[in-house]
Design a protein around this nucleic acid. Structure first.
Lengths: 344, 344
DNA sequence: CTGTTAGCGCTTTCAG
DNA sequence: CTGAAAGCGCTAACAG
């Protein structure tokens, strides 16, 4: 493998001149520039990332912190990852994956001290997040996909859960529904201050109140069985329910079954909307599910760009971007039924 | 950030002694060892990955080659990634993601020449795969998840498509079905020599013949619409069809709809089996789908372990592992119908 | 505009 | 069993 020294000799210049030519750190005469690049081409030279990183103290490697979430990672997360990988490469960065216990800052610190990465992208942010506190304290460059209680000065991008819930509630309200339920993530996650669970629920309640409608909320573990039970509980609490908004697509089979077990048809007798899910899942199910689709690709792209910008710019301007999900109306939502088969 | 020199001073030894103590490359007296480790703890020292890599010519970083596949990456691939990430870390390695155009060896070569990674894991292998040819030629360490036409001396792990198809066909045959169809990946992928498409189809044909049954094969793009059309085409070719095996779960909604549109019930009138899919998808659908489930975690783990072993061992023994999918019987497969509703 | 040189933090000979 | 010192391949002063 040729080194910079080889290129220098081949081009008849000093090693440093090659370095400056490559990095553009210093003006180089057109003529020598060409000689150098010709030599590089001829030798098939590629700068050594490790050496460059060691000397410059900038590795041009960033890490994506992938929490080994209980909920399990889905298609949306896969899109993050792909999108972050591609964007990083477009900017000449490498992306390493760090899957860490979600709320353990120690593990994270050890990884950072290895000096491998220039900065990191953090996902699955909680309202109180020790990882964020740590990073902020030691002033390590990072960006967040998500938000914590205090986001001052931190680059972040997140789903606009408020806007998303408004749109979903509005969609159902405009169809004449007046009695909704919101089926959130697990209680445990809400209590732990998991952002999406907290903010979506908050806005749901608000959004329903503003319109003078009836709204119930309920927590639900990430499996079909619990979805089934949850729907039955909700219908016991309010038999006039005609629509349910769910946060986690994994409970959908259970939710649907609970409805159809009552002899109800979707959407004729009951409407269902997935508040944040992917098109691929929504179209997998029969009936296809009206869904507020997560802007996964954008989140991944912006999160990565924010970080890289913050690594390359001098001035530490920070950005905060909220992207609403896009509501795609499919077969699972329809007008509020006038009458409905009674069940008992 | 403390350096090795700091640790050495703190412990009152030479810098090199610290290095030997850390790497165990040379015997160190128990006493100094302890002094050194105490100093490390006290200073919160972590070896610098870049410097170590540069000096030792082993970065302890590996790459996972994630092709930006047309088919789109799904849950199975996500599991690979997670599993590879975790296994790498267990062995003290970092994992970087390289998403490259699937069949372009040039791009790959440039990445490798940067000297960042010690080896790589290649996915989505084709029968004739230029990337594999390249890697083999320049003797770069790698392992494959998948197989090519010639796998001599290459560490690889793959789904045992043969065994899997046998089990699936046997399952349906034992239920009395005699007229099957196999709905493969897209023709384009088959023609490109995409391993799973080639091997599964080959074994399906064989497996059906051996049992003296009737088998049809058909290609299908990765979307529901094409699944719908394909099923209708197949039923036109053989109206006695009572079961279909599909390779790609993304076509399932279309397949199901084509069946139910004829007024048939699943599995009473028609059986469906997903040849390689994930439990999460299979359970999302109503009826839940009988599925041969991809051993994603194992594939990721073994692929990674093979590579790391090959990086650390002297002797270049190579392993080849085939793992069959596990057949999980759900609601979509049942006994062959005796009579069936006629259509129009 | 170009060359010389001192490191970056570590591994690994070579000498004790 | 331990130390001293020569690099790994590159960047970034410092000197013209």
């Amino acid at each position: 493998m040729p080194t910079m020294q080889d290129v220098a000799k081949h081009a008849g210049v000093a090693l440093s001149t090659v370095s400056y030519a490559i990095n553009g750190t210093r003006p180089i005469s057109e003529e020598t520039r060409e000689r150098i690049f010709a030599a590089m081409k001829e030798l098939g030279y590629r700068p050594n990332v490790l050496a460059r990183g060691l000397a410059s103290k900038r590795s041009r490697i960033i890490a994506l912190l992938l929490p080994a979430a209980k909920r399990g990672l889905g298609l949306t997360e896969m899109e993050f990852v792909m999108s972050a990988t591609e964007v990083a490469r477009e900017h000449g960065y490498h992306l390493v994956l760090w899957s860490t216990e979600i709320r353990d800052p120690q593990e994270l610190q050890q990884l950072m001290q290895q000096g491998l990465v220039d900065g990191l992208i953090v996902m699955e942010i909680h309202e109180q997040d020790e990882r964020v506190d740590l990073l902020r304290e030691i002033q390590f460059p990072f960006s967040m996909i998500g938000r914590s209680a205090n986001n001052d000065g931190i680059n972040h991008v997140d789903i606009d859960f408020g806007q998303t819930m408004d749109v979903v509630v509005e969609h159902l309200a405009s169809l004449g529904h007046t009695h909704f339920a919101f089926l959130n993530h697990a209680q445990e996650e809400y209590d732990a201050g998991y952002g999406p669970a907290v903010r979506a629920q908050h806005r749901f309640v608000q959004s329903v109140e503003v319109r003078g409608l009836h709204g119930l909320t309920h927590f639900c573990e990430a499996d079909a069985k619990d979805g089934y039970t949850a729907v039955n509980n909700l219908l016991a609490l309010d038999p006039n329910l005609t629509a349910i908004i769910v946060m986690n697509d994994r409970i959908l089979p259970g939710v649907l079954r609970a409805i159809t077990d009552r002899g109800w048809k979707i959407p004729d007798d009951f409407s269902i909307v997935a508040a944040v899910s992917s098109a691929r899942i929504a179209e997998m199910i029969n009936p296809t599910i009206t869904t507020a689709e997560a802007p996964a690709k954008e989140l991944g792209r912006l999160g990565t760009e924010m970080l890289i910008q913050c690594l390359e710019e001098e001035e530490k301007a920070f950005s905060e971007v909220l992207i609403p999900c896009e509501l795609v109306i499919r077969e699972s939502s329809g007008p509020c039924p006038k009458v409905r088969a009674m069940v008992f």
